[in-house]
Design a protein around this nucleic acid. Structure first.
Lengths: 216, 216, 216, 216
DNA sequence: AATGAATGAGCCTTCATTCAT
DNA sequence: CATGAATGAAGGCTCATTCAT
C-alpha cells in the first residue's frame, strides 16, 4: 500500500522533472519569450493538456525552473573552495562562486532576470517568492560572514555585500548583453579587481593593522 | 521640386516623431509588454497600417524609442553641474548624472533593459546598434575624462569607468526590481559610497607615494 | 454466492450514492456550469476514472441528480399539511408545497431548468425521462385531485392543474432570475393571488352555489 | 470626405450585421451552448480573429442577438391588431402578440432564456441590460395600459400584468420543453383561457356592474 | 500616405473521456 | 473496482502584419 503510493509519487515526481527538463531545454533554445507550453509539451513527449497535471500554469513552470536554478547557484557557492584559510580567501572564493556560476551559465542569468522582470504574480506566489528570496540570501550569506570576519562591522558588512552583489550583477548584465566588449573590458577581471579593492578598504581595528593590510 | 521633396521629408519626419510620441506614451502607461501597435496607432491618430509607413516593424519602434532615451540620457549628463572645479567633483556630478537619470525614470531603464532582452535582431539593426553604442559612450565619456584628469592612467580610466557603469547598472537593477529593499539598502547611498571609495583609490602622481600605492 | 452478489450490489449502490452526494455538493457550490467530473470525483474521494464505473457519462450524473431532486420535491409535497379539512385548503397546501420547495431551493430549480435546457439526449434516456415524468406527475397529482374534489370536472381539473403549474413555473423563473424585482412584484404573493382567483372560479355544481361563489 | 466616412460606417455596419446573421444561424442550429466563435466566423466567411473587429467578445454577440430579438418582439406586439375597439380586445391582442411571438419562434425563446441564465456580466453590460429591460417593458406596456383601461387600479394593473407575463412564460417553457404534452394540454389554449378568466376578474367600479361581470 | 479590414499563426487553458495497470 | 496519467479536441482570444483601395 504504502510502497505503491511512494512509487507512484516518485514516478510522478520523475515525470514532473521530465517536463521541467523539457522546459529548461526549450527555454534554453528559444529564450524565455519564445518558450511556450506547446513546445515544452512536445519536447517532453506530451500533449499540451498533460502539462497541466504537473504545473498549474505556464508561470508555475518558470517558477520551478527558477527555484532549481537557485539551488544550483547554492550548490556552486557551497562547492567554492578558498585558496587558504584566511577570511579574505574565503570571501573571494564565495564571491567568485556566485559570480562565476552566472558568468559561465548565461541561461541561469536569464532565469534570474526573468524572475525580476517577467514572472506574473500568479506564477510567483508569495510563498515561492519568499523561498526564492531565501535561497538567494543563502547564496550570498557566506560573503557577508566573510566580510564580518575580515573586519567590517555589523552595518558595513551587509552594505558591502549588497554593493558587491550589485557590482557583480551589473558586470554580468554587461557581459551577457555583449556591451562589455564595447568597453573592451572583461567582466571577470573587473570583478576580481573589485574584490581586491574591497579588501584594501578593510577598516583597521583601532591601534592594530589588519592582516590584509599588512600582508600586502 | 527639390524644395518640395525637402518639405515632404520634413513632414514625414514630423509624423514619424508623432508616432514615436505615441509609442512613448503607450509604453509609459502599459509597459513594454502591454504596448501594442494598435494602441500606439490609435494614440498617434493613425490606423495600424499607417505605422508601417514610418517603421519597418514593431521592434524598430522600440529601437527608435531607445535612441531617444539615450538622447535624454545625454542631455541629463550634460546638464549635470559639478559642485566645484575639481576633477573629483566633475566625476561625481557626471556619474550621478546618468545614475540619477535612470534612478528617477524607471521607464527609461525598462527601455534600456528591453534593448538588452527583448529587441529582436531585425529591430536592432547593426546600424542602429552602433548608433546606440555611440550615444551610450557619449554619456559615459565625461566620467572617463574625469577619471583621467583625476590621475588614472589610460588603461585604468576606461576600466574604472566600465566598473563604475556596471556598479550603477547593478544598483539600478536591484532598485528597479525592489530586490534592494530585501537587502535593506539604498541604491543612491551605495552609489555615492562607491564613488567615494573610487576617489580614495586615485593613484598618486609620480614623485609622491600615496599610502595605498606604497603598501602595494 | 447469491448473498455475495447482493452484498456487492448494495455496496455498489452505496458508492454510487456517494458520488451523487459529491455531485450534489459540487453542483450546489459551483452551479451547473462550474461543476466538472474531476471536482466531483475529488469530493467523492475518487479519481476521475472511477466515476465512470457508476455513471455512463457526465449527463447521466445530472439525470440522477434530477431524479433525486424530484424525490425531494415529492417529499416536500407530501409533507405539506392543509390548514383545515376542506378541499380548498388541501389544494393550497399542496400547491404551495411544490411552489415553496422550488422557491426556497434555487438549486433544485436550476436542476429542473437544466433538464429543460442542457441535458443531452444521451444523458436523458427515454427510460429516465419516463421516470422523471412520473415523479413530476406524482408531485402534482394531489393538486389535481383537490381540483376535482373542489368541483372541477374531469376535463377542467387537469387543465387547471397544468395552468397552475405553468403559472408557478413562470413565477419561479422570474423570481430566480431577478426579473420579478424589475416588475416590483413578489412571486409568492402572486402565486397566492393566483390560487385565490382559481378558487373563485370553481364551477357551481348544478342547482347548488358553491361556498366560494356565494361569498362573492 | 463626409460621404466616404458614412459609406465606410455603413459598410462596417453591414458586415457586423453579417456576422450577426451568421451567429443567429449557428445559434439556431447548434443551440446557445454549441455555438462558438470559430463556427460563427466560418459561417460568416471570416477567420476567428476578424470577429473581434465587430464584437468585443463572444458574449457581446449574444447580447446583440438578444437585443435584436427584443426588437422583433416589439414589432410583433405592435403589429398585433385587436378584434374590436374594446379594451378587452386590445389586451387579448397585445398579450397574444408577445405570447404568440415566442410560441411560434422557439429560438427567440432560447435567446430570452439565455439572457436570463447564461449571459456573463461582461457580455451583459449594465448599459445593455438596461436597454434590454426597457425593450421588454416596452413590449409588455400595452397590456398594462389595457388592464388599466379595463378597470384594474394602479396597484392591480402591474400586478396582473406581471402575473400574465409569468403565466405565459411558464406555458412557453412547458411547451418548449415538450412537458406540456405530458399534461395533454395545449399552451395556446391555456393562455387564452387565462386571459378569459382574467377578464372575468375585472373589478366592478363602485355602484356599477361591469359588462364582464354582468355577462356571467 | 493612409486606411482598416482581414489574416493567420499563435497563445494558454479546460475537460470529458479512455485505458493500461 | 479503481487508478490517474494522458489524450484530443475544443474554446476564447491576441496581435503583428499585409494589402486592396
Amino acid at each position: 500500500m504504502e510502497a505503491r503510493l511512494l512509487r507512484q509519487q516518485a514516478l510522478s515526481e520523475t515525470r514532473r522533472a521530465l517536463v521541467l527538463d523539457a522546459a529548461r531545454a526549450v527555454f534554453g533554445e528559444h529564450g524565455i519569450e519564445g518558450a511556450n507550453i506547446r513546445e515544452i509539451a512536445k519536447r517532453a513527449g506530451y500533449t499540451p493538456g498533460a502539462i497541466y497535471s504537473y504545473f498549474e500554469n505556464k508561470e508555475a513552470i518558470y517558477g520551478a525552473l527558477l527555484a532549481e536554478s537557485l539551488d544550483r547557484l547554492n550548490t556552486a557557492v557551497q562547492a567554492a573552495r578558498p585558496a587558504d584559510a584566511s577570511a579574505a580567501a574565503f570571501l573571494k572564493a564565495k564571491a567568485q562562486g556566485w559570480f562565476g556560476f552566472y558568468s559561465a551559465n548565461p541561461r541561469e542569468l536569464d532565469l534570474g532576470f526573468y524572475l525580476v522582470h517577467g514572472l506574473a504574480p500568479r506564477g510567483l506566489t508569495s510563498d515561492l517568492n519568499q523561498r526564492l528570496n531565501a535561497r538567494l540570501h543563502e547564496a550570498l550569506a557566506p560573503c557577508e560572514q566573510a566580510l564580518l570576519a575580515i573586519g567590517f562591522d555589523a552595518a558595513a558588512a551587509p552594505r558591502e555585500n549588497t554593493a558587491l552583489f550589485a557590482h557583480g550583477v551589473g558586470l554580468l548584465l554587461l557581459q551577457h548583453t555583449g556591451r562589455i566588449r564595447m568597453f573592451r573590458q572583461d567582466a571577470c577581471d573587473l570583478f576580481d579587481h573589485y574584490l581586491d579593492a574591497l579588501l584594501l578598504r578593510v577598516p583597521s581595528p583601532p591601534g592594530v593593522r589588519s592582516d590584509a593590510a599588512r600582508s600586502r
